[in-house]
């Protein structure tokens, strides 16, 4: 019977779709599994403290301390946020509250295109233009925390802008109308009413921006100088968790490679915490 056949096909297709849907979870599981399988043994053997709180990274000589890299990763990320977050928020506010329809039509995609430019191109331009500028006007070699923070600050803009923008747009119009009706200026309305109402979304955009900055690799390798010490000033070179992996992975074997996977485990944990935080912050708003 044709009808039955159609139902059967429908069932088969439903199961196929279900398999597709579970593939993402399966891949996530695989990624965790293999990075943990490779990364965890060293934690047992060398000791969690010696890796996470260790200062010396000399994997071919049995020292696997990545504390300086964890600190450096956060320093770079904070630097990127200091530069990128206010700028991104300003752009989002402008787009959501101030820009006319015509301007918005052009500005929004243009700002999102920043996300399309490959990270190697950002890194390259950083090396060619920003590093020499820092060397000439601020001192040091130019390959520095500052250079990395500037490059990453630009790279997190699209994330911060698009998520903050969505948060601002989801503030009900009545809030704005009420404030304006009471005689507040547009800026007072934006500053006192709209931004506070969207604050959780804006916070989430900063956290996701952090995730983007802490995970960026190629651009950071190119401009950060990759020294192993915790930088003493913003003009000192530093090495992040990501660049440690990318610099040495191709070369590594044996325990050295395991050490890089341990670095990967730490990075994975940091990223998952940031993602969870961002999710948590966004959900808070919904509950309110």
């Amino acid at each position: 019977m044709p009808k039955n056949r159609a139902v059967l096909i429908d069932q088969i297709i439903k199961q196929t779709m279900r398999i597709c849907a579970f593939s993402s979870l399966f891949f996530l599981f695989l990624i965790f599994l293999f990075i943990l399988i490779e990364g965890l043994p060293l934690f047992y053997r060398v000791g969690v403290g010696n890796i996470i709180a260790g200062f010396k990274w000399a994997p071919t000589k049995g020292a696997f301390g990545i504390f300086p890299m964890i600190v450096s990763s956060f320093l770079v990320t904070i630097g990127a946020l200091i530069l990128g977050a206010p700028l991104g928020l300003a752009c989002a506010v402008y787009l959501a509250e101030y820009a006319g329809k015509k301007k918005k039509l052009f500005l929004k995609p243009a700002l999102e295109l920043l996300a399309g430019i490959p990270s190697v191109v950002y890194g390259f331009l950083g090396v060619i233009y920003i590093v020499p500028l820092i060397r000439t006007y601020c001192g040091g070699s130019g390959f520095s925390l500052l250079a990395a923070a500037i490059v990453l600050g630009v790279m997190i803009l699209p994330t911060v802008i698009s998520i903050s923008y969505d948060a601002l747009m989801s503030v009900p119009r009545t809030y704005r109308e009420g404030s304006l009706a009471m005689g507040a200026t547009k800026w007072q309305t934006t500053y006192r009413v709209v931004i506070p109402a969207a604050s959780s979304g804006i916070l989430a955009s900063f956290i996701l921006g952090m995730g983007r900055a802490i995970g960026e690799t190629m651009a950071v390798i190119m401009v950060a100088g990759n020294a192993l010490r915790i930088p003493g000033s913003i003009l000192d070179p530093l090495r992040t968790l990501t660049s440690n992996i990318a610099l040495e992975l191709a070369y590594a074997s044996g325990d050295h490679r395991l050490g890089l996977f341990s670095t990967g485990v730490v990075l994975l944990i940091i990223i998952m915490i940031l993602n969870y935080l961002a999710n948590f912050v966004i959900r808070q708003k919904v509950i309110k």
């Binding site: 849907a21 579970f22 993402s24 979870l25 891949f27 996530l28 695989l30 990624i31 293999f34 990075i35 490779e38 996701l208 995730g211 983007r212 802490i214 995970g215 960026e216 690799t217 990501t242 992996i245 990318a246 992975l249 890089l260 996977f261 990967g264 990075l267 994975l268 990223i271 998952m272 940031l274 993602n275 999710n279």
Partner: peptide, 29 residues
Amino acid sequence: KTIRFGVESLAGIPSILYGLFGFIFFVIK
């Protein structure tokens, strides 16, 4: 919800970790 969580998590993983995974899983294992 779990599936969506999986998709969101995949989206948040930085590319170097994909590189690390691809290297150990596809290239080596």
